[in-house]
């Protein structure tokens, strides 16, 4: 599970994010909605321990991340949090399989060949294992990014605009894969998006607009906006 309390974040004194409370139960799925510039990415970075909030605490898998120092936080993130970014960035010097192995290596986990095969197969990438990123299609890259995020079976999967650059069919596929991966081993899934197509799939939604006044809302509220 993930729980945020009294989160505030400022860039040079300007308040960009204020969130009194937000939580997702273990194995639960949630959507963070908002237009670009509403602080979605900032919130996601805070959840992933990539950014330390100006105030407040983030607890993931029972650990308060503000208590972790430098290297400990990096390790914790590698082991317990998988992140899928909008940019679909892969290391161009490594093959698909090596990119996925790298995620295990950097997290300090054993490189489990069986698990790597499993993930490659589930995400329909087995034929592309030895290919380099520059030979892949957008959809394939997106799937490698998901594979990389889930290889270590993290408790929390964060996805930042995973569907925004995809057409309806692909968007649907990516969403399905993310949910399926999360469900297959009970991970908590949080997706940040402004993509209206995703909304109907999630009950737990957080809508960000006015940084001073955000609330965790029910699905009816979100749709009415």
């Amino acid at each position: 599970m993930i729980e945020l309390r009294g989160i505030e974040h400022r860039y040079e004194k300007d308040l960009v994010l204020s969130l009194p409370h937000f939580s997702v139960d273990s194995g639960g799925h949630a959507l963070v909605l908002g237009l670009s510039g509403s602080g979605k990415s900032t919130l996601l970075h805070i959840m992933g321990g990539l950014l330390r909030p100006t105030a407040g605490s983030v607890t993931v898998a029972g650990v308060d991340m503000s208590s972790l120092k430098g290297h400990q936080l990096d390790r914790f993130r590698g082991k317990h949090i998988g992140i899928v970014f909008q940019q679909m960035h892969l290391l161009g010097s490594l093959t698909v399989e090596e990119n996925i192995r790298l995620a295990s290596y950097l997290a300090g986990k054993p490189q489990d060949d069986a698990r790597i095969r499993e993930v490659l197969t589930e995400l329909d990438l087995f034929d592309k294992a030895k290919s380099y990123p520059n030979t892949l299609s957008q959809g394939q890259k997106q799937r490698v990014c998901i594979a990389r995020a889930v290889i270590n079976k993290p408790e929390l999967i964060l996805a930042d605009e995973p569907t925004s650059s995809l057409d309806d069919v692909r968007s649907e596929n990516v969403l399905r894969l993310l949910v399926k991966q999360a469900e297959s081993y009970g991970a908590t899934l949080v997706i940040a998006t402004h993509d209206q197509r995703i909304k109907p799939h999630f009950e737990n939604q957080l809508v960000l607009d006015d940084p001073v006044n955000v609330t965790q809302s029910a699905v009816e509220e979100a749709i009415s906006r």
Binding site: L50, G70, H71, D74, R75, R77, G78, F85, A103
Partner: peptide, 16 residues
């Protein structure tokens, strides 16, 4: 720069 950032998100420390 992006490779470096991505590696950090995957658990690499600054020292690494």
């Amino acid at each position: 720069a992006y490779d470096l950032a991505i590696m950090r998100t995957m658990g690499a420390s600054r020292g690494f």
